[in-house]
């Protein structure tokens, strides 16, 4: 896939910034503590998701995108990671200052989350229907029969084959793709306003990936949900995103509407990612890769975090960290952005 592949989607949905914001993350900082020392893995992330828009958070493993997502749900692994600063607001309400009880009420009901590995994400000793029922009844005052009805409807919307007959199935009786559909059903059963999907297709077969993605997008459109999709797969981004935020080493380095990001990437890291996409029209030659490695979060370099890998780095880049500067619908964290050339 390359820049031209996204053209077909341009103009289908207007860019999100004119709608009312659902999720606003400002200057979010998350630290991980291990062996007595602690270091920042999310360094001042700012992100907004509006109603009826899909925002993709892209970055390589360990860049802090999953931590960002988990912190919205209040599900950071206890005793290991914690939010040390910033603000997360859902419909204007600060999530970080909520009581446990209030946060629990929001989960699944207003904000849902789908995880990466459907194989381990479902309780193996209970039938899927009983878990769905349990989640539904913990938020709605309905009878078991009504809860089952809601559950079946959700499973059907998630396109699980023979949904009604599957309620008594145990997770081990379902394939990975089917389990991810159960996870989707669990996430959409209560009509949440915001859906966070953390690499929802990474663990699945390529063919199933496309179906699951298609299904997620269909549910998002018909419910006008806001959706935060976390992925490292630019092909996924190109096919579903409205807006894209690129994350590197715990910082957002660039944000733009999807078409502009692919056609005119500004940040050298984004440019490198797009250049690294395999091009099927070229049959020979080695694949492009970004030189160097991600700096270890324990000892970040003094200036721009990408400077050690950047071919355009100036002296300034080694000394000071650029701020994220906003220009209309786009933002960029770079002192020396160069025009994009493919290849």
């Amino acid at each position: 896939m390359n820049a031209t592949a996204v053209e077909s989607r341009s103009g289908e949905v207007p860019s999100g910034l004119d709608r009312s914001p659902l999720l606003e993350i400002e200057d979010l900082r998350i630290s991980i503590a291990s062996d007595g020392s602690s270091f920042e893995v999310v360094k001042g992330v700012a992100l907004t998701v509006c109603e009826n828009e899909i925002v993709c958070l892209v970055g390589e493993s360990g860049c802090g995108k999953s931590m960002t997502a988990l912190s919205v749900m209040g599900l950071l692994p206890r005793g290991i990671a914690k939010v040390t600063g910033g603000r997360i607001a859902f419909e204007g309400r600060s999530l970080l200052s909520l009581q446990k009880r209030e946060l629990r009420r929001l989960r699944a009901d207003s904000i849902s989350m789908i995880f990466q590995d459907p194989i381990t994400s479902l309780d193996p000793v209970f039938p899927i229907g009983s878990v769905l029922e349990e989640v539904i009844r913990s938020h709605r005052d309905v009878s078991r029969a009504e809860a089952r009805e809601i559950a079946v409807r959700a499973l059907m919307e998630a396109e699980l084959p023979d949904a009604a007959d599957r309620l008594d199935s145990y997770p081990h009786q379902l394939s990975g793709g089917m389990r991810q559909r159960v996870m989707i059903a669990l996430a959409i059963a209560l009509d949440p306003k915001l859906l966070i999907a953390d690499e929802p297709t990474t663990a699945l077969d390529v063919t199933v990936q496309a179906q699951i993605l298609e299904n997620l997008r269909a549910r998002q459109r018909e419910r006008e949900m806001g959706m935060l999709l976390i992925t490292h797969d630019l092909a996924v981004v190109a096919s579903v995103a409205d807006r894209v935020a690129v994350m590197y080493a715990g910082e957002i380095v660039e944000e733009a509407p999807v078409d502009e990001l692919f056609s005119d990437p500004q940040h050298p890291y984004t440019q490198g990612l797009i250049r690294s996409l395999p091009d099927i029209s070229v049959s020979k030659g080695s694949l492009h890769s970004i030189p160097g490695r991600v700096p270890p979060p324990q000892v970040p370099p003094p200036g721009c975090l990408f400077a050690p890998r950047c071919e355009h780095a100036l002296d300034l880049c080694w000394e000071a960290s650029p701020e994220l500067s906003r220009d209309g619908a786009k933002s960029l964290r770079c002192y020396n952005a160069q025009p994009f050339e493919i290849g």
Binding site: D117, V131, E134, M183
Partner: peptide
């Protein structure tokens, strides 16, 4: 308690007490 399925149940908004006693 550290498993993925418990994280799913937490994301489902079940109470910690219920998750511990049942699941």
């Amino acid at each position: 308690q550290n498993s993925d399925y418990v994280r799913t149940l937490r994301a489902g908004g079940l109470s910690e007490w219920r998750i511990t006693c049942k699941h």
